[in-house]
Design a binder for these strands. Sequence first.
DNA 1: ACATTAAGTGATT
DNA 2: AATCACTTAATGT
Length: 211
Amino acid sequence: MNKQHKLDKILGDIFSERLLKNLADNGRIVSLEEGMQIISRGDDIKDIPIVLEGTAKVVRTDEKGEEHILFYLNEKEACTATFSICATSKKSEIDFIMETDGELLLYPVHLMDNLTKEFPSWRYYVCKNFNKRMKEFLNTMDSIVFMKMDQRILKYLDKASKALQTKVLNITHQEIANDLSTSRVVVSRLLKQLEHEGRIKLYRNRINILF
DNA sequence: ACATTAAGTGATT
DNA sequence: AATCACTTAATGT
């Protein structure tokens, strides 16, 4: 499948013909494997990545070298953080890593201004992306500020069960802890508490949601 | 039977 | 809520 076709198929419903042509002409498509790091903190950003296939994660790494996930990017999504950075400096504040195998469209940063000027569908896309991220940030802000871990876990379980359309989650306490940036012990304790309240039932590698 | 990994718990900060 | 140290339970080889 050639570049133009691929872009048409994946992004055709949100971008105009001319914009797709522009992306195909100036961008390049790369296939990547799980775990590959595309951008590291401090890098000069030459391209902005748009996810065509698979999932990527955007993380910040703290002094101890621990990763904190800012957000995941699925198909059709771009790293809006890089947009805002391009406008000011050229250095990345974040790490960009592939969570699964997948494909990215890399579009040169220096051409991005033109996109913004010329294509309404691009402007709309960027705004929408930015808006989505902003909402997420506000949500996580609320959680962190109030430190209500039990509430965060409840919300997490609820979200997961809705997303996966099931009341049976195959997940470990450790995985939940990673996602919420806390320790496994804390998660185990709070889950036990929820179990006693009759809201969930615990098994190994599995949680049944009873609400 | 043994090793490995997930989960539970008390004590401490 | 986080961390440590330790126990117990489930699973894989």
